[in-house]
Nucleic acid binder design. Structure first.
Length: 967
DNA sequence: ACTATATTAATTTTT
DNA sequence: TTAATATAGT
């Protein structure tokens, strides 16, 4: 067994795996098999050193990484053994210790977890109450920073200077008191209290034989302390990490912890892995060049094991929507050109921030490309879900005043903001929980000082009724299997939740209702006895002689567990990855959430200043590392792109990291021509079989363009757009100008966060192209003519003022139309980049003018015409109009039901969706039909796929959203 | 005086 | 897509 493990490793890796060193650091650049090494070492410790899996702790930073790690370890040691490991995020492992041993440090058995919104609400209220000038979110972050340093509020107050610091200290102290009153721990508390527990009761971890930590560069000081505490018995520690991939500075990660570790244990052995097995040479070199801009960074070697491959692309596009459309067209082009070598699941779009995913989701939806979204809005953060969960939280822990305050007037019960605030303050001053105060008031045991009018009073009693009913149910129920679902159903029924949604969200209530159904489905899953057993077993810690352990078997413990899992976004199932593969979905993810993962083709859009580096980021080195992490996710093809106008239609400036001298030499300006040799190259890099020429050629024929030449390389609007506009003006009426020739107008897309089952719609481009070509040509000629008539001087006008970056208009018409057959990048000769600065280089190169078939026009370049057109000229105003047309119904959801608002008969898009069979009626118990696990997404993803009955649908902008019968 | 509703602005990354 | 603010209504 052990030899099996070692067989697949290189010498450095196997040195690391088998090292006898007690404390071991493995420093490993991206793609060097870091996780593999760590998992192999776990397997080795079990197989060779006979460590018991339950005595091994494995820590990761993200939920995603934890489940990834688990999968990998399973591959080595099997599911049974893997299950026994104590594996999870720092937070979830800490939680386990606190749940089971918390009483030893005086922790109430039933503490809840304050999530971000709780914390924010608390701080906001404190700030408001005391009329402070501090920004609430800033204060919250500051509290978190202090906690991560291990400074509690009293300590802080001691050292605080007058003024701002004193004020903040007050908030900090108040915040802590509020948490305590509501019996809540925030994320930082989980780590802090666990540290406190293990310091005072080292017995808790006396069984621990080995500790392994992934992504160690992301540890903060508290986590470092936890490391030493977890391992205190035997000090057998293995960490893997890479300073270049430190991207959690905002969470107080300390890269210094690497050296601190060496100082604490001078015998620490450090092993460097240097060979990259993931990316092509070209990608690696480009990434390397970026990261080396950081001069404070110690130089490192990173050896490519793959051939040079295709150079990464740095592409300019007119706008975010244009960028999205282009991106999708490249996904489709690459897929076709490689004859099925690549599936949608081989593509990833990595974003600096999840908020900019919208145009991309829109474009993908329009083209019928299935996708899933990781990061960003989580399922449990959706208001309709969160509301129910909050009710559960209150039923479970009525003293959680935060949750009570949030739901007491939800749905609206005429208990307004002012009343809640006043009640909260009164509760606080009486040292009561909000719930206690409200309950006593409603039941006539207490006359609150807060004035309450009749409707408010009535509202309060309705609220009390709901909670009491839930609570009774919780206490009286005997069979644990049904209780969770029953509770959810009870809440939903008591609130008339469905009609509430209908009233409050007339536009998309059905989609929201589906989310509620999904929550119910999750409750069912969580109440499944087998699943519950597995979960308890996984969460259990080994019993230790002479140490009292709390058992987690009672009913409301189950509810607590369910809620805690929600708070930590810990998944109840780990099927997501496989499902993603099976369902063939493209991945959209934040770069942060993509860490540790890889894809054959990676797109990083929005590479402009303000996005990467982010405008709010203080540490630009970290932002650079972020870009580096993103780039190094790619195996075979990497696209960076930048809209030259941001969403507000202001000019953007290419990311500073990409403007550095020499950088441009590593990139192409547009997507690669895919010759047959490239396909074989890709196949080798990906270690896949190369598809046959016949297949490739067949696929190719269904493609409208086999080159990335629709969009100009300097980011201007493509000629079609201009042509269309021109014609639109002539006709007096504006015609929507999406490049219909390129993409079919599939109205069936998916709601954000939902995976779709919609089959890809075959685009019908057949004859449209020819028409377009003609149209474009005419338009351009017309333009040029007009221009020439106007004056001869205009072409040398100064460019418009206020531009951050001037874009040279040297392009000629050929470069738009001509098929520029590009030579394969000569691998060796390119390896030495030219030292040109991209911005100073002619942006429009005509690579092969002779090949184009169209009449040459000896006239000023089209791009210069564009450039110098006055602001109020139609040429400029057109995109604005377009953007408006785009906006309105974009984020509306609609549902296909058995009696849907009927689309035009000629709309064929509905055929792909599953119609809703029936709408659930309110008084019936809501029990979604069972569905196979494979259609079901876990909660670790943001996406949850309720495919069994209904499909959430986000309509494309000019679909039948407007005809759907809303107001 | 308080609550509900419409408009407007702003929007990092994760546990 | 929320959060804060202004306004109308109870």
């Amino acid at each position: 067994m052990d030899s099996d493990i070692l067989a697949s490793l290189n010498s450095a890796q196997s040195d690391a795996v088998t090292s006898q060193a007690l404390v071991l650091q493995v420093l490993a650049p991206p793609g060097s098999g870091k996780t593999k090494t760590l998992t192999a070492r776990v397997a080795h410790l079990i197989a060779r050193h006979q460590l018991k899996p339950w005595n091994i702790i494995v820590c990761t930073f993200t939920v995603k990484a934890a489940s990834e790690m688990k999968d990998r370890i399973q591959g080595f040691v099997g599911a049974e053994v893997a299950k026994q490991l104590k594996l999870g995020t720092f937070h979830s492992i800490s939680l386990r210790y606190l749940k089971q041993y918390g009483q030893h440090i005086g922790l109430d058995k039933d503490f809840g977890i304050a999530d971000t919104s709780d914390s924010k609400a608390i701080v906001k209220r404190i700030v408001k109450k005391n009329d402070l000038t501090i920004d609430a979110t800033q204060a919250r972050n500051r509290i978190s920073t202090q906690k991560a340093k291990g400074i509690d509020c009293e300590q802080f107050m001691k050292g605080a200077k007058k003024g701002d610091q004193q004020e903040f200290g007050q908030v900090y102290r108040d915040y802590e008191a509020t948490l305590k009153a509501s019996n809540l721990l925030d994320y930082d508390d989980l780590l802090l209290r666990c540290g406190f527990l293990l310091r005072s009761h080292p017995q808790c971890v006396s069984n621990v034989e080995a500790l392994l930590i992934d992504e160690f560069q992301d540890t903060n000081n508290i986590q470092y302390d936890l490391m030493t505490l977890f391992a205190q018995r035997q000090n057998r520690i293995t960490i893997v990490g890479d300073p270049d991939q430190s991207i959690y500075g905002f969470r107080s990660a300390e890269i210094k912890n690497l050296t601190r570790m060496k100082e604490q244990w001078p015998d620490t052995l450090t092993i460097n892995l240097e060979e990259n097995y993931r990316s092509s040479g070209a990608i690696l070199h480009a990434a390397q060049n970026i990261i080396e801009q950081d001069e404070s960074r110690p130089p490192k070697t990173l050896q490519a094991t793959h051939s040079h491959g295709l150079r990464p692309i740095l592409r300019k596009l007119p706008s975010a929507t244009g960028e999205a459309t282009w991106l999708v067209s490249e996904v489709q082009r690459i897929q076709k050109m490689t004859g099925g070598l690549l599936q949608p699941s081989d593509f990833a779009v990595l974003l600096r921030s999840a908020t900019i995913s919208r145009p991309i989701e829109h474009a993908l939806g329009k083209a019928g490309v299935p996708y899933r979204m990781i990061g960003g809005m989580k399922f449990y953060d959706r208001i309709e879900v969160k509301l129910i969960v909050d009710y559960l939280r209150v039923i479970s822990h009525p003293d959680n005043s935060e949750a009570v305050a949030r739901i007491v007037n939800m749905p609206a019960r005429r208990v307004g903001e002012a009343t809640i605030k006043s009640l909260l303050e009164e509760a606080r001053s009486q040292d009561l929980s909000l719930w206690r105060l409200i309950l006593d008031t409603v039941q006539g045991r207490r006359r609150p000082t807060t004035k309450l009018n009749d409707p408010s009073m009535k509202g309060l009693s309705i609220f009390v009724d709901v909670i009491l009913c839930g609570h009774t149910k919780l206490l009286s129920s005997q069979t644990e299997a049904v209780i969770l679902v029953d509770l959810v159903n009870l809440v939903v029924k008591k609130l008339s939740f469905q009609s509430y949604l209908t009233k409050k969200y007339p536009e998309d209530h059905e989609a929201r209702w589906t989310n509620v159904e999904e929550l119910i489905a999750q409750a069912i899953d969580a109440s499944d006895p087998e699943r519950l057993q597995a979960m308890l077993q996984e969460n259990a810690l080994p019993t230790i002689d002479g140490l009292e352990q709390r058992t987690a078997s009672s009913l409301d413990d189950m509810l607590s567990l369910f809620l805690a899992n929600i708070a930590l976004t810990a998944s109840t199932q780990e099927k997501a990855e496989q499902d993603g593969e099976k369902l063939q979905q493209l991945t959209i993810s934040t770069i942060h959430a993509a860490k540790g993962l890889e894809w054959p083709v990676v797109f990083i859009p929005a590479c402009y200043d303000g996005s990467i580096p982010h405008s709010r980021a203080e540490d630009h080195d970290e932002e650079r590392r972020l870009l580096y992490v993103g780039m190094t996710r790619a195996q075979a093809l990497l696209y960076l792109s930048c809209p030259i106008k941001n969403t507000k239609r202001e000019e953007t400036s290419l990311s500073t990291f990409l403007l550095q001298p020499g950088v441009s030499g590593f990139f192409e300006e547009h997507g690669p021509s895919i010759a047959l040799s490239s396909v074989t190259g890709l196949a080798t890099t990906l270690r896949r079989d190369c598809p046959s020429t016949a297949v490739i050629n067949k696929d190719k024929r269904t493609l409208e363009r086999d080159e990335d030449n629709y969009w100009s390389v300097n980011g201007e609007e493509p000629p079609e757009e201009i042509a269309k506009w021109d014609y639109g003006k002539g006709g007096g009426k504006f015609e929507p100008t999406r490049p219909a020739a390129v993409f079919s107008s599939a109205a069936v897309t998916m709601q954000q966060g939902f995976s779709t089952a919609s089959a890809a719609v075959q685009p019908g481009f057949t004859s449209v192209k020819a028409q377009y070509d003609e149209l474009m040509e005419k338009a351009v000629l017309q333009k040029v003519d007009k221009r020439a008539q106007q004056s001869n001087t205009t072409t040398v006008e100064e460019p418009p003022k206020g531009r951050k970056r001037q874009i040279e208009g040297q392009g000629s018409i050929e470069s738009f139309f001509g098929k520029r057959s590009r030579p394969e990048p000569a691998v060796e000769s390119k390896s030495k980049p030219t030292a040109t600065v991209s911005s100073s280089r002619p942006l429009h190169e005509i690579r092969n003018p002779a090949s184009h078939q169209r009449p040459k026009v000896a006239a000023p370049g089209l791009s210069s015409l564009l450039q110098h057109k006055p602001r109020n000229a139609p040429l400029y105003s057109k995109p604005t109009v377009n953007a408006h047309a785009n906006r309105a119904p974009d984020n509306k959801y609609m549902f296909l039901s058995s009696s849907p608002p009927q689309p035009e008969p000629d709309e064929n898009e509905t055929s792909d969706t599953v119609p809703t069979s029936e709408a659930a009626h309110e008084d019936e118990p809501i029990v979604p039909k069972a569905r196979p696990a494979s259609t079901f997404h876990t909660t670790s993803m943001q996406s949850v796929a309720p495919q069994r009955k209904t499909l959430g649908v986000r309509l494309s902008r000019d679909g039948w959203a407007n005809r759907g019968g809303r107001k």
